[in-house]
Amino acid sequence: MGVVSPGFRGRARESSRRLPPGQYETHDFPVLSAGPTPRITRDEWEFAVTTETGARHAWNWAELTALPSDSPTVDLHCVTKWSKFDTSWQGVSLDVLLAEVETAADFALVSSYGGYTSSLPLEDLLDGQAWIAYGYDGDDIPPEHGGPARLLVPHLYFWKSAKWVHGIQLLTEDEPGFWEGLGYHDYGDPWREQRYQGD
């Protein structure tokens, strides 16, 4: 009959409104990785912020999880074109972690266990835009999705949200990360479809 319920059209409009250009919605959670999955125990896990002067601020697992946490529900947009809506996380805002860090840096280079890096402006880690996430969908983050902890910066393409996060270097000049140094966009705003250099 070709009858389409108003509800169905409503969801379609809602979906398209939340999809950045060139993206499609997926309901599973694809696993992307540039290397083998590191198996990091909570006992050995550490996260450190190092400033441009060399000052180091470090947190172990107990210290991180004792900090005030948020439970953001966000949409994810991968540069390989899938988007996943309404993902639920638990983690500590970078606003909390960087509150006592004195810096004049403008850029951040995020590093992971396993050697992965991603780069972004420091201001994109602040003002409620980024977390060190240690929970996903009410449970621990599985290793293949970056557990025990990963960066979560959902307003940029998801390669910025480094899995197995280990540290952040604060820098006065931009230093490209793993993909930014090989053709991908320095900033990576999905709504401006900044996939590759020059976009």
């Binding site: 992307l32 990785s33 290397g35 050697g115 390669w159 993909w179 053709g183 991908y184």
Partner: peptide, 29 residues
């Protein structure tokens, strides 16, 4: 490793990244 924004070829002995390829619609890196 092909399930990534590019292809990442690692040394089978030490895991070091030996080669990376990224393909955009009009450019290869």
């Amino acid at each position: 490793y092909t399930r990534a924004p590019g292809l990442v070829g690692r040394c089978p002995h030490c895991g070091h990244v030996a080669l990376r390829v990224v393909r955009s619609p009009d450019t290869a890196w």
